[in-house]
Amino acid sequence: MKYLITGTAGFIGFHLANLLLERGDTVIGIDNINDYYDVNLKFARLKESGISREEIRLHESVRSSKFEKYSFVKMDLADKEALMSLFEKEKFDIVVNLAAQAGVRYSLVNPGAYIQTNITGFVNILEACRAFPVKHLVYASSSSVYGANTQMPFSTSDNVDHPLSLYAASKKSNELMAHTYSHLFNIPTTGLRFFTVYGPWGRPDMALFLFIDAITKGESIQVFNHGKMKRDFTYVGDIVEGIKRVADKIPAGDPDWNGDDPDPGSSYAPYKVYNIGNSSPVELMDYIGALEKALGKEAKKDMLPLQPGDVPATFADVSDLIRDTGYKPDTPVAEGVAKFVEWYNSFYKK
């Protein structure tokens, strides 16, 4: 298969590209390499996949020195003309859209970035898939769409009409936009609600990275909601294995779907939504404890109230993922955190 993966300088996109390339697929990766966080980490991910920083030019293809079937193009999803040209040239089988403006708290201070990338960029992806048909469009949604919901575990059959941040609203919008294109143009689409992804090469704005950085510098870590948080922490290797399996399963539409009692996670159209999570929530203090154990050092803790846009708990129901793909994420937090610490120490010593 020939894949387009958007966001391959990013955390999940980097790992997915490597997984598919090791399987033997052809991958074209794109990323705008914005400065939301340290671009040096993004370039380091690309270098790990054989893409030289010095060769990267806007809209020009760079071949990997590590993977024969990998090329990278610096491109912004908001640039519709460049995106259309790429689709026309490459004729992709499967598109995995992971490029997005991430971060719940950042959406409170820079909402425009979320509209440009997560809304305008995504409709450009949909239009490109319409103009140059693909077998399957898979895209990243988020567990944040569950918003004010409190019934656990979170199910794709639940109503998700009460987001608590613009980031969450943009991801819910992606699901609605995808359904429209599945209905109107018969484009098979699958949305994936990721639950608190962590692991090697992770984003510096995420909790695990912030914690280890502060602890190693002898600084205090910020523990929100006074530590009374539960998260369905999911190891990045489990996330990309889930994406790979879902991408291989193209939705055809459910003939039993009923408009009188509509299931939000499926449709009569070729449309599906899955949760990808560890389905085993962990107390934030236990997560911090796993990090302290891996580091051999205790953290100084500043206990703070819940931040605007945050939710106190997440818990994924992955029963339909298991049913349809035979896969269940299961990496224990202690194991995943230890792998992150090993990578962090190795990367920053270099």
Rank of each mutant, 00 (worst) to 15 (best):
M1C: 09
K2R: 12
K2P: 02
L4C: 05
G7L: 00
G7K: 01
A9D: 04
L16F: 07
L20A: 00
T26C: 07
T26Q: 12
T26S: 15
V27K: 01
G29P: 02
D31Y: 07
Y36L: 15
V39K: 14
V39C: 06
N40G: 07
L41T: 09
L41C: 08
L41K: 07
K47Y: 13
R53W: 14
F67A: 10
Y70W: 10
Y70S: 00
V73A: 09
D76C: 03
L77R: 10
A78G: 13
K80P: 02
A82V: 00
A82I: 04
L83P: 00
M84W: 12
S85Q: 15
S85T: 14
F87W: 10
K91R: 14
D93Q: 09
A100P: 05
Q101V: 03
A102N: 14
G103Y: 05
L108P: 06
I115G: 00
T117S: 15
N118K: 04
I119L: 12
I119E: 13
T120L: 11
G121I: 05
I125S: 10
L126Y: 03
L126V: 12
C129L: 05
V134G: 01
K135T: 10
V138T: 13
S144G: 06
A148F: 12
N149F: 06
T150A: 13
T150I: 13
S157L: 10
D158V: 01
N159M: 11
V160C: 09
H162R: 15
L166T: 07
Y167D: 06
A168K: 02
A169K: 00
H179L: 14
T180W: 13
H183V: 15
P188C: 07
P188H: 05
T190I: 00
G191S: 12
R193M: 05
F195K: 02
V197A: 07
Y198L: 02
Y198R: 07
G199F: 01
G199A: 07
P200G: 06
R203V: 13
L210M: 15
L210V: 13
I212S: 09
I212P: 02
D213V: 01
A214C: 06
G218L: 01
E219S: 06
S220R: 15
F224L: 07
F224Y: 10
H226G: 09
K228T: 12
K228A: 11
F233H: 04
T234Y: 13
I243Y: 13
A247W: 00
G253F: 01
W257L: 00
N258S: 13
D261P: 11
P262N: 03
D263C: 04
P264Y: 06
S279Q: 10
S279R: 08
S279G: 06
V282H: 01
V282P: 05
V282F: 03
A294S: 14
G296H: 08
P305L: 04
P305N: 04
G309V: 11
K328T: 08
D330F: 08
A334Y: 06
E335V: 12
G336I: 00
V337N: 01
K339G: 09
K339I: 04
F340N: 04
S346F: 12
F347N: 06
K349P: 02
K350H: 12
